[in-house]
Amino acid sequence: MSLWEYANPKKFMATSGAVLPWFAVAAGLATLGGMIWGFFATPPDYKQGATVKIIFIHVPSAMMAINIWAMMLVASLIWVVRRHHVSALAAKAAAPVGLAMTLIALFTGATWGQPMWGTWWEWDPRLTSFLILFLFYLGYMALWAAIDSPDTAADLTAVLCLVGSVFAVLSRYAVNFWNQGLHQGASLSLDKEENVSDVYAYPLWLCMAGFFLLFVVLLLMRTRTEIRLRRIKALEARARMTDA
């Protein structure tokens, strides 16, 4: 019994089908609970007023936008090294979720920036980096969509993901070099004094857990759909061979 058994489509379908409802319930509870707690049970900030509550969507989506790309990188590496098809399909399935998270982070950032900084958009390094990340997601998904042969698409997108990751990190440093920004530092870290206070931190942790679980649910559902599509192709191919 090893972890790699779940890379077999059959095993993956059985296991993911069994755990999916539980994850869905947990994701719903954590996301809704965290947001209700955050929106209605926390006081307005003494400086930022009620707009601070955008943090409960902004920070989790921004965190997931980056982590989903990291997950795609790991999944691509597993595909390249071990040739597990489910891994390649999981990377494909994750991309639109990551794209959506990036969009949410950009949108909530703009609505937060307007009252705080007086502008919808600022070429701040963090904002700029997310815009670049958005373009990376677009290119990755467009390459998947453009290639007919599934294995070729999996291989080429994996190469793009590896190279793109390196350039995404380079872009982050280049953008920092190019413009120092307005954006505040990390909202949550273990050793910083400028962290948000506990009254915001606890619901924020819950929202982050909720967004993470939401991603797991969407990832499992989308991967299952991709596996079904591949099965349809495999069955069609078999039918053609039987006819021929």
Partner: peptide, 8 residues
């Protein structure tokens, strides 16, 4: 694909 890679 190439334009984002040109950023740095």
């Amino acid at each position: 694909i190439v334009l984002p890679l040109y950023v740095p």
